[in-house]
């Protein structure tokens, strides 16, 4: 069975320094009509799990009803959250614990000052408060840290923190590049990325909790493991667009459309998934051609950076183009 990552809303109740400005001005929520289609057609299409993202998914005005409908239809669910609303919604999670597979809390620093500098004053305590609610109510949770120049030195502390908090694990992921973020000095160079990845792989060997890295880390093979490309995971944005990748959803108002495969207002989930499978085939064929032509650069071994270029998700003025370690390779990405 597969899972569907559903962007319940592109709105958020925080204003994080490593997010992009459009998110902060966002106004959209997933409609009931789209949810109906997912629930009616998902299981027939081999989907049994819905993973809610955003924005902050728990601020969807009908979050309570959505959870009830999802569970009533027999799907399991999980969500990624900043934790702010967990003290409010935990009774809903307790009531549906049979279907609830856990929350992933975004914690971008092992230290309060580091996290709060990125996500706003008081936000660290909100995450740990959410963790305490989960522990007391016996609800599963894990932690996710986006690696930036500010928190790169706290990776081992983060693993220790996850263990001491009773987290089910900790996952690290690289920051998605955009011009907004470059101006804030948060990005790691390619060398820094590889260095922190090496530290994480070392920690994984000895940590008492599961330690993982989200896809996007350096991969020797051009054909890295990524759930959508393995057809294990599909992504739906709040407008009902099935997309190849959830990263930078809505960035530049989704201007390129290069990874949009269809909208569930206009087609069935089965039709959209068939387009998804075909698109993955084209993607892989394009990549094989690129490798065969000897055009696969160092930058391209970071899968998300390859896809950001391939999908034209950031403009030609992307900081990737001026990055000191990628200036030779980032400007000639294929257009779709």
């Amino acid at each position: 069975m597969s899972r569907l990552v559903v962007e319940l809303t592109n709105r958020c109740n925080l204003r994080c320094g490593h997010c992009y400005d459009e998110r902060h001005a966002a106004t959209g929520d997933l409609s009931s009509e789209i949810l109906d289609r997912i629930l009616a057609e998902g299981q027939v299409c081999g989907i049994d799990h819905l993973s809610f993202t955003g924005g902050e998914p728990t601020i969807h005005p009908e979050f309570d009803g959505i959870v009830r409908r999802v569970c009533g239809a027999g799907y399991t669910f999980s969500f990624v959250s900043n934790g702010v609303r967990v003290p409010k919604i935990h009774p809903l999670l307790v009531e549906h614990r049979r279907w609830f597979q856990g929350a992933t809390f975004s914690l971008d620093g092992a230290r309060e000052a580091t996290h709060d500098a990125l996500r706003g004053p008081g936000s660290y305590r909100q995450v740990l408060r959410a963790a305490s609610v989960c522990v007391v109510k016996n609800l599963s949770f894990t932690l996710n840290m986006v690696l930036t120049a500010r928190n790169r030195g706290e990776v081992s502390e983060m693993v220790e923190l996850a263990a001491r908090l009773g987290s089910g694990g900790v996952r690290f992921g690289h920051l998605m590049p955009s011009p907004d973020i470059a101006s804030r000095g948060l990005e790691l160079s390619l060398d820094e990325r590889r260095s922190v990845e090496a530290e994480i792989w070392r920690l994984r060997e000895s940590a008492s909790v599961p330690v993982a890295m989200a896809p996007g880390y350096f991969s020797e093979s051009p054909f890295f493991p990524c759930a959508p490309l393995e057809l294990e995971e599909f992504n739906l944005d709040y407008r009902g667009n099935l997309t190849l990748c959830c990263h930078l959803s809505g960035y530049r108002r989704g201007a390129t459309g290069a990874d949009v495969l269809g909208n569930l207002r206009r087609m069935s989930l089965a039709q959209a998934l068939e387009r998804f499978r075909q698109r993955v085939g084209v993607y892989l064929a394009d990549k094989r051609d690129r490798v065969a032509r000897g055009e696969f650069s160092e930058l391209d071994h970071f899968p998300c950076l390859y896809c950001v270029k391939y999908m034209d998700k950031v403009s030609r003025l992307s900081p990737l183009a001026s990055h000191p370690r990628s200036s030779a390779t980032a400007t000639g990405g294929p257009s779709c």
Binding site: P91, L128, R129, A131, S132, V133, V135, V136, K137
Partner: peptide, 9 residues
């Protein structure tokens, strides 16, 4: 926690 219980950390 709304059910008379309080969580501390």
């Amino acid at each position: 926690l709304g059910d008379g219980e309080t969580a501390l950390l």
